[in-house]
Amino acid sequence: MSQIPLSKYHLLTKIGQGLYGDVYKANILGTDQYVAVKKIRIYDVSVGVPITALRETSLLQRIQHQNVVKILEVEKIHGQIRVVMEYLKLDLQQYLNENKDRLSVELLKKFMHDILSGVGACHRLNCIHRDIQPKNILIQDDGTLKIGDFGSARVFQKFPQFFTSDVCDLWYRAPELLLGSNYYTIAIDMWAIGCVFAELILKQPLFQGENEIHQVKLIIPNVQSFQTVNLNDPNLQIQFNGIITNKLQNLINQDGLDLILKLLKLDPEQRISCSQSLQHSFFR
């Protein structure tokens, strides 16, 4: 008798579209436990298994951290690959849209602590996420935040490597990326975290550029020419700090503002890391 493999998961409804295929809410057969199942769609036979899928399964399976979304299993069924992940019904973007009230300082601390811990776990394992934004930060029922969507993530080694500069959602893209750098570091994630922090306070994205040039101008208003921008020019930083302080000073305490300014350093070399941020007085 030929065996027909049976999936352990029963697909319920489509809940979204990931980078490499549709995402379904499913339950584990015989239980009422929910999981998210990402079907890896081979869009293009000529490419084989999509790069985003390969990177996500490779990186996420190893990062075991309470603030990073978990892969439970990679299932191969009917010649198709399905990535089974823990099911989280809400992301930070939806949360911000639905929740009009200002976040308390306590909640800000909790959220930022979770984000920095999750991203810090990736960085310790030599992985740059490259797409930190509220949509990719998921919320568990108990309020714990988890970093998800590792389709853009990649590993790095400890010497300069050439990477594509076309990463990160525009609004969360670090200035060195906007200026076209190909030799960036984990500091690009730190900039994005800074933008998310400001967004949690403002209840709207910090810099909403319409295109790359507009985005640069929001960060460095009197930019003359992109070629000559020197990100470690102290005057540029002072000017920029002024913009941030104006937007946020009445909405957050001094420690919080100080942490944001350290995350949003124009010069990537000067930007604070996850482990340093977690030691910051804001969390005390």
Partner: peptide, 29 residues
């Protein structure tokens, strides 16, 4: 191309879809 695709699947399931294996140069700091 079918043989290539099949081999890709076969190799990926052998490594359990985790291509992140440590190389010698990963240890360089």
């Amino acid at each position: 191309s079918k043989e290539i695709t099949d081999m890709e699947m076969s190799l990926l399931s052998l490594i359990e879809y985790d291509a992140n294996m440590t190389t010698i140069t990963d240890y360089y700091d």
